[in-house]
């Protein structure tokens, strides 16, 4: 009986911001609206969770993954992994699809921009295990998938799809040549 009353209360209660900073070892990025957050969650396919369209294995890498937080059933949206390299979080979470995990990282809560439940994941581990996995595998996975793009410089200077877009419409996207675009922003 108590369980049902608790469930009823949870369903009826308005969403309330909770503090998940206790125990977090997340490193700061010195962001205006960052809040350290360590919590337990289930790794889900975000599109599946929202629309009910659910392919196998969370979309097998094509789709963004979400963190369905155990404490309040809130769907947290991981936007970012721990690398300062323009890289998302889906690659880091895919090995944990469907699992209950603990994650540590930074929540972004900025009412001025309506940013809420946005997350930068820094490390993840399956619930009940000791060892953390750092959420910094994106560039390694990219390199494995792009053996022909080896070379100097960061991945984003060598990515074939990005470079094809820049070759077509330029760095500013409006058709200026490299020289023209560079001059235009000086």
């Amino acid at each position: 009986m108590k369980r049902f009353i608790t469930l009823l209360a949870l369903l009826a209660a308005p969403a309330a911001a909770q503090d998940f900073s206790e125990g977090s070892e997340a490193k700061t990025w010195n962001l205006y609206a960052e809040v350290p957050a360590l919590f337990e969650a289930t790794v889900v396919d975000a599109t599946c969770e929202i629309t009910g369209d659910c392919p196998a294995n969370c979309g097998d890498g094509k789709r963004q993954l979400g963190l369905l937080r155990s404490a309040d059933n809130v769907l947290v949206y991981p936007n970012k992994n721990s690398q300062p390299a323009f890289t998302g979080a889906a690659v880091e979470l895919l090995p944990f699809c469907g699992q209950t995990v603990e994650v540590d990282g930074l929540l972004i809560e900025d009412p001025d921009l309506s940013a809420t439940n946005i997350y930068l994941v820094q490390k993840v581990r399956t619930k009940g295990t000791e060892e953390w996995t750092k959420a910094n595998q994106w560039t390694k996975v990219w390199a494995e998938n792009h053996p022909d793009a080896k070379g100097k410089g960061p991945w984003f200077r060598r990515d074939p799809r990005v470079n094809a877009r820049i070759d077509t419409t330029g760095y500013l996207g409006i058709g200026l040549s490299h020289e023209e675009a560079y001059e235009a922003v000086q």
Binding site: Q64, N79, A85, F86, G88, A90, W138, W155, R161
Partner: peptide, 8 residues
Amino acid sequence: WCSAGGIP
């Protein structure tokens, strides 16, 4: 970069 990098 961000789109190709898998940021939503």
